[in-house]
Structures are given as C-alpha cells and as structure tokens.
Write a protein that binds this DNA or RNA. Structure first.
Lengths: 147, 147
DNA sequence: GCTGTTAACTTGACTGATTCCAGAACATGC
DNA sequence: GCATGTTCTGGAATCAGTCAAGTTAACAGC
C-alpha cells in the first residue's frame, strides 16, 4: 500500500524549487532538507539544523524561506495548540496529527473515515467548508508507560 | 431537542464559581459574563469588555482569571491557527469550529458523525487518543458573497 | 460583625516567537 | 559578463503571554 518513501536528494530539492519557480539558494536547499529529515520540527530546531549544515545563517532567512516554501506548497505549517509553529514536508495528502498531552510529541495519522472525514458538518451556519483539520490529543506510548 | 439557552445571571456566575471552589470576585464575574456575551472573543477584547464594566482591571488579572476559569472547566480555550487564543463558554459538549479563511470569523459546529467523530484513527502510532479537535476552514457567508 | 489567613489583584518588567526595515549580497536572464 | 530584481543580513520592533514581589480583599472562624 505504501511504497518506500525515497529520501529526496539535493537534486530533487533543486527541481522542487525550480518547479515552484523559486530561486535555488543554499538556505532553501538546507531548509528543505532539514524539514524532510526532521518532520514536525519547530522553527528553532530547523534554524539549528540549517546552521549545522551551512554555518552562519540568519534566523530571518530561515523564517523567510519557511514562509516562501509554505506558500509555494512545498511545506506545510502546523500550529498545535500550546506549541510553536512546526513544519512538515508531507503535503497534498489529507493527514492529521496526534499530539501527546504530556511531552508534546507529534505523529502523523492517516484519517480513518476516508478522505474527507468530518467535512459534512451538521450545521455550518452558512459557511462554505473546504477543509477539515483534525488534531487528536492523547498520550504517546512512552508517556503512557510513565503514567 | 434543544431548550432555549437561558442567559445566565450574575447569581448563576456566582454559583458556578463557588461550585468550582473559586472565590467570587469582580474580575471573575465580569470575565465570565464577557465570555458568555461574546463567544470566541480573544483576550484583548475580553479585557476591553471587562474594563468597560468594572473600570480599571489589570491585563494580568484577566489572563489570570481566564486561566483559572479554564482549568476549572468553566471556560474553554481555543487556539485557531493563525490567530491568538480565544475563549468560549460552551464547555462539556463535543463541538467544533469553522474558521473563515478570509475574515477569521468563527462559528460553532456540532459534529455530524455522532459524539466521537474521528476518534478512530486508522494508525495512531501507539498513541492513546482521548480527544479529537476539529477545525473546519472555509468562507463565511459574508466573504463568499464578496469573492 | 471582626479578624487572620490566604487567594486574588496590581504593577512593572521580561521572555520568546515572529515580523519589519534598510542595506548588502547574490542568482538568473539577457 | 552585467544589470536587475530577489534574497540574505543584522538589528530593532511588536505582540501575546508570563514572572515576581508587594498589596488588597474574600471568606471561614470566632
């Protein structure tokens, strides 16, 4: 059902940027790579990873790149309640997240109820709904053990 | 199915506070009243409403009261992505929210799929899930017209 | 009703995430 | 190569929310 997700190479990243008509720069490649390698990482971690790879990069550049890549659709920004913004590289598939109440760990969850889970709200007050984002809350395996 | 929701009086708020073993103070009554009267209001609006009623109240007091009432279960804190924290007085019933992409308006939505909508995630990575929060995104009636 | 205890409020400073700005550096089309 | 428009740098600003110390006031017990 799910083929092995090949780890994208620098060339892949390059092509993704070109396809989005964005210039290919060091910070952008590094950010793309960092997010692919560290799903659900917050901005600060990403800055750390990028700096580890490139040396000195301003936090401003990372914020800028993250926003550019997000609006270009190469990244997805998620904002779990009680946490700072995080980014992930899985885009385009309708998946959601579990957040651990205790340690804040995040994992991906494919929705069980098909592709548009709760899109059929009973009474939407006249809103035109086009997306439903689900955040599950609970305890991760580690925290369950330490209860 | 749904009886008329009586607007709570100051006496009701008083009793709610006592029931939660919280002291009855002016700021607390004013905050409770403000949130009941302005659902989905952000902290700043609540501060405004409370000051309009009581005169000078420190923002710290309002933050403090909001947290106390939230942990006591009298209020619910919601954090829509891209917006600051908001509070509402509907607690205890499993309902969700629609957020307008354009103007940020928020409305309540009762979940269509019963009482525990998407709690059955297909693969929860070993997480023990106990709650699902759904945020619908779309356009409110007003913004649909202005498209 | 008075009083002591202790929770709640005030004041003011502070943190941490994010954004804005102006100038320097750079990728890319010609 | 060169011009040009975008991107990056560094610093400062903003904004929601938190911390800490001291003062005030709710309310339980007399």
């Amino acid at each position: 059902m799910r083929e092995t997700r090949r780890v994208p190479t620098a060339t892949d990243f390059r092509q993704m940027l070109r396809a989005a008509s964005l210039r290919v720069t060091g910070p952008r490649l590094a950010v793309l790579s960092a997010v692919h390698g560290h799903p659900h990482a917050d901005t600060d971690s990403i800055i750390g990873v990028v700096r580890g790879e490139l040396g000195a990069v301003s936090h401003q550049a990372v914020y800028d790149v993250l926003r550019a890549l997000t609006t270009a659709g190469l990244l997805r920004r998620i904002e779990p309640p009680g946490s700072v913004a995080r980014y992930e590289a899985r885009v385009g598939d309708n998946h959601h997240h579990v957040v651990c109440r205790s340690c804040g760990a995040i994992a991906d969850v494919d929705c069980a109820v098909g592709f548009a889970p709760c899109l059929t709200a009973s009474d939407a007050h006249g809103f035109t709904i086009d997306e439903a984002e689900v955040v599950y809350r609970g305890l991760c395996p580690t925290c369950v053990l330490n209860t």
